[in-house]
Amino acid sequence: MIHRAKRILSLLCILCLCSSVAASASDTETRAVQYFDGSYAEVTGTEERAKDWTEMVMGSKQFTYYDPQGNVLFSYIIKTRYVYDGTKAEDTGHFTMFYVSEGWEKQEDSFDGKHAKAVFSNGETEKTVRLTLSCSKNGKIS
């Protein structure tokens, strides 16, 4: 029940954060990682520009881990909103979300607005996910 409440709260946070930004442009980049056991992961980075506020950008990264058959085992998402002015970029709000399939659980989750770390386990295997999200002084997400 606690996990369900956290998921609902995470979704509400997303809706609040996203509703304050009407995105006019979005860029997405995905890269894949293949593991020796046949499992694989995809890391997707997204940059969204605000429609009415040119000095604001939202960035996100998502790590999704798949079994060899292509079933999603878990997914970890970090999202940050930045305001920039040509001399600096400031984190004005950030959060994490996750999804775990049956048999998996999230052991650890930390995100300071730039560096994120999460640990997922199924009792036999433990996977550590590290993601970095930042914004240049000119509003470029990396």
Rank of each mutant, 00 (worst) to 15 (best):
V72I: 08
M56N: 08
E48Q: 09
N71E: 13
A50V: 00
T64P: 02
Y66F: 14
E55N: 11
Q62S: 12
A50I: 00
T54N: 03
I77F: 07
N71S: 11
Q69A: 09
D52Y: 06
W53A: 04
Q62I: 15
V72N: 09
A50Y: 01
V72Q: 04
R49H: 05
N71L: 09
V72T: 15
R49G: 02
I77N: 04
Y65G: 02
S75E: 11
T64M: 15
G59N: 03
Y65H: 06
V72P: 04
G70F: 13
L73D: 13
W53H: 09
E47P: 01
E47K: 09
I77K: 15
M56F: 12
E47S: 07
D67P: 08
G59E: 04
F74C: 11
Y65K: 03
Y65S: 01
P68C: 11
R49S: 10
Y66I: 13
Y66A: 13
G59I: 07
S75V: 12
K51D: 01
T54K: 01
D52P: 01
D67K: 11
N71T: 12
R49E: 00
V57Q: 00
P68T: 04
Q69W: 12
M58K: 03
W53N: 01
Y65T: 06
F63C: 05
E47Y: 00
I77H: 05
F74N: 13
E48M: 06
F63Y: 08
Y65E: 14
A50H: 11
P68F: 14
E48S: 00
L73V: 08
S60E: 06
D52R: 08
W53P: 01
Y66H: 05
E48I: 01
E47W: 02
L73T: 11
V57P: 00
E55C: 07
F63I: 03
Y65M: 06
S60P: 08
D67E: 05
F74T: 10
Q62N: 14
Y76S: 07
Y66M: 11
W53D: 02
K51A: 09
Y76F: 11
G70V: 06
K51C: 04
D67S: 10
T54F: 09
K61S: 05
T64K: 13
T64D: 10
